[in-house]
Every structure is written in structure tokens, then in C-alpha cells.
Computed example of a mutant assay.
Amino acid sequence: MDGIVPVYKPVGMTSADVVSKLRYLLRMRKIGHSGTLDPSVDGVLPIALGAATKAVPALMTLGKTYTGEVTFGFATETEDLDGASVARVALAAPFTDAAIDAGMQALTGRITQIPPMYSAVKVNGRRLYDYARHGETVERPVRQATIYRFDRVGAPVFDAAAGTQRVRFEAQVSKGTYIRTLAVDLGRSLGVPAVMSQLTRVASGGFTLAETLDLRPLDRETAPAAVAAVLRPIESAYPDVVQHTLTATEWAAVQVGRGLALPLDQPQVALMHAGVLKALYRREGTAYRPDVMFLANEGGPTA
């Protein structure tokens, strides 16, 4: 079974848990996910099966959309509700919609982020969360991210007794964006501590929440058919790449990794044989050379 499965990851499971469960349900080892979701976050998790694992980098570049909530008035060590509180400033009055919207707009576009200490980013061969759990500090790498949209959804909710204000949002972002940090940065722009208090990934890798498969009710008998019903072909990871159907002569050349002279003017081309993606070739001068090979791809049930 080769292809991409848009899976629903529920709160409480790690992305690795989802992969492990699918390996058990489908009795196959070659499975990978395209973008980690924290245990407290639910939503879309595209899973690559078989030959499609080579397409994971492409899936991750397709961008992600989230809905969630920021709470102003306190901050935690993890930047979400899983961590201990590290700062608290009771709000005497709520921020206006205009002030919140302006803060969100200021964080739209190309921005710089510093990953949270409780994250999987590696520094000197160790995960940041490992340093954090041992009470160690380390200089964190600066990262670039693109925020395509960061919009308020609905009216903010002010809790005068708690001195907090909750704001619902929707954000469309590039690969590598930390939504937790985006929430904290929004609070910082308003001069108060903040935390990401809820998050759902509603789109990733070209798939939406409505298209996902919930693994929880499945067993080894029902899973294969359920996965087959939503399995997408590998070329779903390359929506903008022009496809070329190979001739018999071209197919013979591709099988041994030879370059091709194709009547195309594209930076990259998806080579199809018998309706199945077999390779991505990239233009080099006047010829096309192997980029990513999917020779083992036999296609999924819906390919």
C-alpha cells in the first residue's frame, strides 16, 4: 500500500503514537508522518505509507492552517497549558478588538521566531526539551517563518475575576512555525504574558480536517479497508508539478536512473507509468535528471 493517508490525531496521542498504531493496524513498517503535533493539539496529520515516505519533505512544504485560542494574563514554561506558570499579570481591563487585530497584523508575513525550550529542536545533538527537563539553559537557534494569515475569530472573552482575556484565532503558516510562540509573541506585543490555550490543525499537506480518518475505532480487520478508502496517491504531495506519461523507451531509462530529454520547459516533472508516479526529475541544462525515485510505488487503491 503506497500513498498518503490524512489521519485525525486526537488530543493525548503523540504523532509517533499515530505512526505506531498504523504500523500495528496495517502490519507494515514503512510509515512516516509529515509534521509533529504536540499531545495537547488535535487535528490533521498526513501519514505517508510505503514509497510515499520519500514525499514527506514535499508534504511539509505545503503549509498548515490552525484554529486556536490565546489567553492573555499569564505565561507558562511550555508556552501552552501543559507547563507550569512562570508569569502572571492580571488584566484590569480587556484589550480592544482593534489593539488585538493590530498585534496580529504585525505578526503577519516573514517573521523571526525563537523555538520554545520545550520543543524537539536539536542543539549540539540534544533536543531542547531535554535541556529544559534537566533545568539547563542553552542558546536557541533563530528561525524564519512565514505567517500568511493570523486573524481573530469572534469576540474576545474577558474574565475580570481571573484577570485574563481569551481570543480565538485562525492562522495559516509555513513549515517550521511554532504557534505556541506566535501566541506568546502576540501577548508580548500587547505588553502582557500570554499562552496558547487551545490548538487544532485544520489543514496540512493539502488535506482538511473533514478528509481525515479517525484511527480510534479501527482494528486489524477494519483498518485496511478504511485506510484504502481515503488513501491518496503520492503525487498529491506535488500538486503544482507537471506530469509526464513515460513512453516504453523512457520507462526503461528511468528504471536504471538515466536522464531524459523531454519536450517540456519545467523545473521539475512527475514521471508517470501505468498511471502511477515513478519518479520526480529535475531539469539540469537541456536534460532532466533523477531527483526523487518512487520505483517501488505500485499505487494505492484510489491512485
Rank of each mutant, 00 (worst) to 15 (best):
D159A: 12
V5N: 02
G275H: 08
T302F: 00
S85I: 13
T36W: 12
A102F: 10
M104Y: 05
P233A: 01
A210K: 13
T36R: 13
D291L: 09
S34H: 03
P46R: 03
E221C: 00
P57C: 05
Y288D: 01
T96P: 03
T96S: 15
G103W: 00
V192K: 02
R126V: 07
M1Y: 12
K278G: 10
Y281I: 00
S34C: 12
T71Q: 03
G135Q: 12
A303N: 14
T96A: 13
P94V: 10
L260Q: 11
E211P: 00
R166T: 15
T112P: 00
G300K: 07
R133M: 09
F95A: 04
L215W: 01
D219V: 10
Q144R: 13
A93Y: 10
L182W: 04
W251G: 15
G35M: 04
R258I: 00
P193C: 08
A228D: 15
R133S: 08
R152P: 07
G68I: 02
D17G: 06
K54T: 09
V173Y: 04
D101A: 14
Y129I: 07
H33Q: 06
D80Y: 02
Q198M: 13
L209R: 12
E79W: 04
A160F: 07
Q105L: 15
G12V: 00
D82G: 04
V292E: 04
M60V: 12
L186F: 02
T181V: 11
L22Y: 11
P141K: 08
T78C: 10
A16Q: 13
A98F: 05
T208C: 02
L262R: 11
L215E: 01
S34Q: 07
S119R: 05
E250A: 10
Q172Y: 05
A303K: 00
T245A: 15
K122G: 07
D82K: 01
A102V: 04
E170I: 14
S197C: 10
Y118V: 10
I31E: 07
L25F: 09
A183T: 02
V173Q: 02
R149A: 15
V241E: 01
R127S: 00
A252R: 15
R127F: 06
A106T: 13
Y131R: 06
Q268G: 00
M196E: 08
S20V: 00
L277V: 03
V230M: 03
V202C: 14
R88E: 14
R289C: 03
T36L: 07
R166G: 03
A132R: 06
G163P: 06
G300F: 09
A225D: 14
R232E: 08
S34L: 05
